[in-house]
Amino acid sequence: MQEIQFGTTLYVGDESLKRLSDFRNEKILIVTDSFIASSELLSHIKSYIDSGNETMVFSEVIPDPPIDNIVAGLESSKDFSATILLAIGGGSAIDAAKAMLYFGKLTDRFHGIRFVTIPTTSGTGSEVTNFSIITDKEKGTKYPLITDQILPDEAILDSGLVAGLPPKQTADTGIDVLTHAIEAYVSTSANDISDALSEKAIRCVFTYLERAYKDGKDKVAREKMHMASTMAGMAFNTASLGLNHGIAHAAGARWHIPHGRINGILLPNVIRYNAGIMEGDYRKNTSPAAKRYAEIAKFLGLNAGNAQMGVRSLVNAILALEKSLSIPKSLSEWGVNKEQFESDKNVIAEAALADRCTATNPIVPTKEDIIRVLGKSFK
């Protein structure tokens, strides 16, 4: 038996921010980063909040939030007695708010609080998931926090908030959407519902991501990618992820590579590994996962006469898309040098094996397998 639930209420479309005007006599703790806090974006969002509400802003969230960042947020708001926790930003801000919520509930600080998210990027899907990624800076490791206690109650999806996202961030977050959807599709916990969400998200990425990258004011492309991010989040919140994210959490923290970008670098080789053809010999017998990848190729209209052809077509399509987005082809192209790679590969492989996302990968990897994937992705 598998339990499937979608506990987040979505507010979508034009003027979805009007949902904030429904709040009355609340104490709203806003969690965001310094960039958003100092921009017109926060003022624009706050303009929808009735003056009868009391607000407090914690704006010290940093990328890949570490534990001390979470502690700082809890400490600064300890006397505020918030009734609504409002996370505004990308994955880091929402993840930080989730971790604050989790530890706040443990200490009964946030008993009965409502959790609302407003994503300002189209990538993490964090607005609808029970995942949060926290970084241990000393160890150079990211830890997934996975519990329904941090699932947002509401998510406000206003694609107008991402219209100004720079091309590089558009590319990185968009490839994160693609990785979420593909990993959920081939996950050992995949089901018909997660498949439907994954398929729609994948189609949207291949149709609209390059458009959004080339023209950030393309309203249709922005809207489609914003919804694709949420659909992919719903898919992996149901089916979980896989080895791609297991490695990305470990390698991204150690080598300070943006999450979407490290996912993009790894994705072609993780697909090849899971399909049983990492060495590039498409004549070899493939794994059962290859059929799932071939299904993706088929619904994208790619050449998929058999499983091997489907995997090759999908990998080539991903490489072509990433090239159009200026995603680096390898870790070395990003800037990881040989000495760093050799020094860190064993630690990264061990962390990836222990990562909870790896548990639902379609192939059970060994440490040696992960090092091989890293090696292919380094060159």
Rank of each mutant, 00 (worst) to 15 (best):
P328C: 05
I30K: 06
H44I: 02
A253W: 00
I370T: 10
R109D: 07
F58L: 07
S122Y: 01
A171K: 00
E54I: 11
R292M: 14
N346D: 15
V347M: 10
L101G: 03
L374E: 05
N303G: 00
K78M: 06
I247R: 01
R372I: 05
V71T: 13
V311K: 06
K214F: 00
S240A: 12
T83H: 04
K298I: 04
A290F: 07
Y293G: 13
M231P: 01
T32Q: 10
E40S: 14
A289W: 12
S51V: 12
Y213Q: 03
A93C: 15
S330C: 08
R292Y: 11
A82W: 01
G264A: 05
E199N: 03
V336P: 10
K217R: 14
G216M: 13
I247M: 01
F110R: 08
N130M: 11
A72Y: 02
D355V: 12
E199M: 14
T179W: 07
A235S: 13
S198R: 10
S187D: 12
P144F: 04
F236T: 08
N269S: 09
T121Q: 07
S229I: 05
A351Y: 14
R254L: 06
L157G: 12
K217N: 15
P365K: 08
G104D: 08
A93P: 08
K291F: 04
P66T: 06
I271H: 13
A251S: 14
G233N: 11
I277T: 13
A155Y: 09
A352R: 01
F110C: 10
I45F: 05
R203Y: 05
T360H: 09
D136K: 06
T83C: 00
N244D: 15
P365D: 05
H249C: 07
A251P: 05
I202T: 12
N130C: 11
A184W: 03
S92Y: 04
S229G: 10
L319S: 10
S132T: 04
F206C: 12
N53K: 09
E138M: 07
S287G: 03
T147N: 05
M100R: 02
T188V: 12
A317W: 06
